[in-house]
Amino acid sequence: MTDDYQVRLDPLPDPDVLRESWQALEARSACSVFLRWPWIESWLAMIGDSRGDAWLVTVSLAARTVGLGLIVGRRTRNGLGTRGLWLHETGDPVLDNLTVEYNGLLSESGRESACLQAMIRHLARSGPRWSLLHLPGIPAHHLDMRQLQDEGLDLQCKESATPYVDLAALRKGGQSYLSGLSANNRSAIRRTARRIEQKFGALSLRLVDGAGARLEAFDRLCDLHQRHWSGRGGGAFADPRIVAFHRRLLADPRMQHQLQLLALMAGERPVGYVYGLIWGGATYFYQAGIDYDAHAGSGSPGLLMLSLAVQHACDAGQARYEFMAGDSRYKRALATQADRLVWLTLDRSGWLLRARRAWRRLKSRGGAAR
């Protein structure tokens, strides 16, 4: 029963106090890598003074802290100047391009859904004035949509598949990852490997080790990634604050075994790099950089590199390889299963909700008149 949970919102405490509270609860949680303290600490450093209003959400049960989260508030630009709240995001689309998935409250293991529902219920009935509450990248099974509707909230929901490979099942079945792919994808991967080896030399996937080497490889990855994507929507590393966020994590000794950079080499020439996050028995594919200029006409260097990265994770004993949210063709080609994440916006009931609907109707009529 969420009635048994108490929820409190406070201004952000001193960083040392927040770190101690967060790490104490993290030790009792089954959280994703995106809710671990090193990620949260680096995120707070990245957003700095641009975060607007911010609160620490504390969920308690019988005087024991069982949930923590960070809420950021700011005015939105939707024609009405409404106030929005974001969970572990800022409302700034540039900064939020960092992309947080498997989000929610940091919760005591098994209480993820109850803590999240308790927070939403508290915000719906009290707390700071707000009109829109944004909950990005929440596991679908952590949300009870019927309960949310019972609170009188208008729901705007976007779901996305999160394709993954069940590595534990592969090992149990005694098969290689490549052998389980479709004949067409196996053929494309092998053909690409042959072409690259014929031109540049034998292929090898190498783990980049050492702080200096990791930062150097990450910089090369960013350069290759941006070179490819700058004319196709900007890329994941277009903003220097996001680059600094990842460089800070890569230099953090606490994340030595949770951040992974793999280099695919042809002879001594890099084909590309894979940047992954490792936590809780899963490897999360975050981004990649590929030298498409050097390997134009080789086929599918991205499929080749990621297939080798998946096999590497399998050989390392990981349980899952997560491709993260999205319906890209390469994810469908390489994944064996999929979960669901939800990007949920809760629209608070009241006069502002009715005003927004009236405003939308007026806009619609104006567009039809033109």
Rank of each mutant, 00 (worst) to 15 (best):
M1S: 11
D3L: 07
D3G: 11
D4E: 12
V7M: 00
D10Y: 13
P11T: 14
L12I: 11
D14W: 10
L18N: 01
R19C: 09
R19Q: 13
S21T: 11
S21L: 14
E26D: 07
R28S: 02
S29D: 06
A30W: 01
S42D: 14
A45R: 13
A45H: 07
G48N: 09
S50F: 06
S50R: 13
G52H: 08
V57C: 13
S60W: 02
A62L: 04
V66G: 00
I71R: 12
R77A: 14
G79Y: 06
G79I: 00
L80E: 01
G81L: 10
R83T: 11
G84M: 01
E89F: 04
T90A: 01
V94K: 06
V94Y: 05
D96G: 02
D96K: 04
N97L: 13
L98P: 03
L98W: 03
V100W: 06
Y102L: 08
L105V: 00
L106A: 07
E108A: 00
S113A: 15
Q117K: 13
R129E: 12
S131I: 11
L133R: 00
P136H: 07
G137V: 01
P139T: 15
H141P: 15
D144G: 06
R146D: 15
E151M: 11
G152N: 12
C157D: 06
C157F: 05
V165M: 04
D166E: 11
A169P: 11
G173A: 14
G174S: 08
S179L: 12
L181H: 00
N185E: 01
R195G: 05
F200L: 15
G201L: 08
L203H: 02
S204W: 08
L207E: 15
A213G: 12
R214Q: 15
A217G: 14
F218H: 01
C222V: 15
L224T: 00
H225M: 08
H225F: 03
S230R: 15
G231F: 07
G233N: 12
F237Y: 00
D239P: 00
D239T: 04
R241I: 04
R241H: 02
R241N: 05
V243F: 06
F245V: 09
R248K: 15
A251S: 13
H257Q: 15
H257G: 03
Q258Y: 08
A263K: 10
M265F: 11
M265E: 14
M265K: 09
A266H: 02
V271M: 03
Y275P: 01
G276I: 05
L277N: 07
Q287Y: 01
G289E: 02
Y292R: 12
D293P: 07
G297Y: 04
S298R: 04
P301W: 07
G302Q: 00
A309C: 09
A313W: 02
A316Y: 07
Y321L: 01
F323E: 05
M324E: 11
G326T: 14
G326N: 11
K331G: 01
T336D: 06
D339M: 13
L341P: 02
G350N: 03
R357D: 11
R361W: 06
